[in-house]
Amino acid sequence: MTITLRLFARASELVGQSELELELAVQSTVGNLRAQLGRQFPQLAPTLPHLLFAVDNDYVPDAFVLNDGASVVAFPPVSGG
């Protein structure tokens, strides 16, 4: 299945793109997505354990199961204020 992933801040800087499409196995979880990002983009390694994921404007845990066509957002810890 295919998902779209938007990246922000240092995650986007390290990958060199702010949006990408990724192929994942059906029933993949956010944890699977995190692992795949680590394989595909080794430069993300130090950031990877800290990446936060969101779907439909809400944070989702690693156990969250993604649907085909899901729009997922990933970013390192926030620093507003």
């Binding site: 801040a9 240092r10 800290h50 970013f75 390192p76 810890p77 926030v78 620093s79 507003g80």
Partner: peptide, 18 residues
């Protein structure tokens, strides 16, 4: 989800991620 990027006096920039 808001992030700040430092523009340091030495000319480097750096995203702030606690």
């Amino acid at each position: 989800p808001i992030w700040k990027k430092e523009n340091w006096a030495d000319g480097t920039t750096e995203w702030v991620h606690p």
